[in-house]
Amino acid sequence: MFRNQYDTDVTTWSPAGRLFQVEYAMEAVKQGSAAIGLRSKTHVVLACVNKANSELSSHQKKIFKVDDHIGVAIAGLTADGRVLSRYMRSECINYNYTYESPLPVGRLVVQLADKAQVCTQRSWKRPYGVGLLVGGLDESGAHLYYNCPSGNYFEYQAFAIGSRSQAAKTYLERRFQSFTDSTREDLIKDALIATRETLQGEKLRSSICTVAVMGVGEAFHILDQDNVQKLIDAFEIVGQDEAPAAEPDAAVPAEQGAPAEGGAGAGADAGAAPEVDVAPMDI
């Protein structure tokens, strides 16, 4: 039986120049339920799919406010995501205490990435098993970043992470060129459609998604469920009826095309293709 000799701790290289533990952490991101982010010149919208782990439980919060001008959506280990959001909140508070002005988004993202990087180089640590879409505004405009467990970070116009995010990415890739000049409402609409794409036929309802907005003159806030449902109804984003023929499940591991490919050539070897509907790591 095949056994990988190079994945027992984070700091061991494989002869091919890969760090398996880091790649496994990035797999955890793919198994979490989807999170989506997109931005215009003036607004950033974050959205995510909320999946309860059991009929008996409620779902976990996957979008967090960091400050009035920054928010994150996470996919992967929610517990790690919470710890990192708390870190980001405290960085914002400290910066605000010293300068009485908001922390620039890009700088927070670098600090966050450096924190994640440390975990890829210490034998007694474990990489964070969470991907973060960090949206925010500062004096250089609206920003959307993706931070991954490898310590890499990328800036995007629009992006999606988590299970079946490929479908959302396909949608966003077709549409992103118009996002810069989108209105706030169009941005939310695109976020909802992209979210629906990840549902693979399941009906989009406000009970299984969360949407958050921030913009120029609009502090970060999570839209309440009634409003989201109204928007879904208004945009007539229903089930699969007019679904623009996105390729089904097979798309999930084919993530390489996107520039998000972190660390080393993100391995498609992590055993069988991840479970598609449940998120076993997302506890």
Binding site: T98, Y99, S140
Partner: peptide, 19 residues
């Protein structure tokens, strides 16, 4: 050195000095 289009203005410097 961040070279990211953000810069400390007089308000930020004044606050920093106060601290």
């Amino acid at each position: 050195m961040w070279d990211d289009g953000n810069s400390l203005g007089p308000k930020e410097i004044h606050n920093y000095l106060t601290r």
